[in-house]
Design a protein around this nucleic acid. Sequence first.
DNA 1: CCTACCGATCGGTAGG
DNA 2: CCTACCGATCGGTAGG
Lengths: 198, 198
Amino acid sequence: MHERSLATIASMALTTAPSTRDQILARAVELASVEGLEGLTIGRLASDLSLSKSGLFAHFGSKEGLQLATIDEAARRFVRDVVEPALGAPEGAPRLRALCDRYLDYLERRTLPGGCFWAAVTAEFDSRPGPVRDAVRDGLAAWLAELERQAAVAGVENPRQLIFEVWALVQAANSRFELFEDAEAFSRARTSIEALLP
Amino acid sequence: MHERSLATIASMALTTAPSTRDQILARAVELASVEGLEGLTIGRLASDLSLSKSGLFAHFGSKEGLQLATIDEAARRFVRDVVEPALGAPEGAPRLRALCDRYLDYLERRTLPGGCFWAAVTAEFDSRPGPVRDAVRDGLAAWLAELERQAAVAGVENPRQLIFEVWALVQAANSRFELFEDAEAFSRARTSIEALLP
DNA sequence: CCTACCGATCGGTAGG
DNA sequence: CCTACCGATCGGTAGG
């Protein structure tokens, strides 16, 4: 076990230099949080990374391929930055609280230049059927299902209703923070969420 | 000031005769609810209305002019379809309840093809500074201020916190309805809001 | 990963 | 409100 984690650390250290594709997707997630997945253009992305358009294009095959890869990368970063750090808390109420806290902190730190990636792409694609909307929906559904599962473990009587309310408040905090630059947005959300959690 | 501008907009809506410009803006609000204010292109709009691009363009002078006029039209329709019908209810708790009910009904009927106009354009422009974001912010601020005023008249101790929560739930209902085609989204929101209102 | 292209569409202009 | 344009940029392709 010690050997494995050392090997993992070593291999991470050796592979820290991100691939071109990883660099592209890191920038793509940032850009999409501000400009959306349609505003994410291949030319802009290539220019930001000093690549040729066709060189960048070849990694994804189509704009839709780039959009889907960007959603996948955003989900991966979300797990790494929000879900994984909360795994130390026991399942149920403590885990649920940790997941909410982590994400509110993540948003408040303005980790992405446009705030919540899911807020941006959900509003953009929620009424535009197709593979991109499906991927957004699946990514968000996985997150909501995890929150609902923790609420169920905590013995909440109606997990879906509770998580509907909790996620509503998180999204409202993001929206108010971004649109109104309202510094109180997150404390408002934390107050309301604390009153709801078991 | 917010109240006066709402009343002014309402009276304009009642007295303005149909014109090419009005037809353009009616379609623009619909399109923007799906495609956003950037996805709203002059060529697409002209084609939908069988006008030349330059003929349509001349009404607004720039794309930004079209975007600002579209926001203004959306606000006008919002007042006509949501605010005015609620004015029969006495100020305070009944008015607040009527405003919420009206808007939830409006969204559930899917009056606009992309759902809530404010949800679409807020998420799109909330991290993109400029006149368009300012107009979105001002339109939403007028609506939230009206809700807060009714909450204050109703004797709520913290109107801002209450309306933060109420609007969060309305937006969550719209988002779930659009993204997941969740028929229960609005009943969820109504249940939660009913528990919050005085 | 590149250069060199392609047709379509973008916002916008000239002139009527 | 129109026709006839403009340069820039879009997603995408050919070929290396």
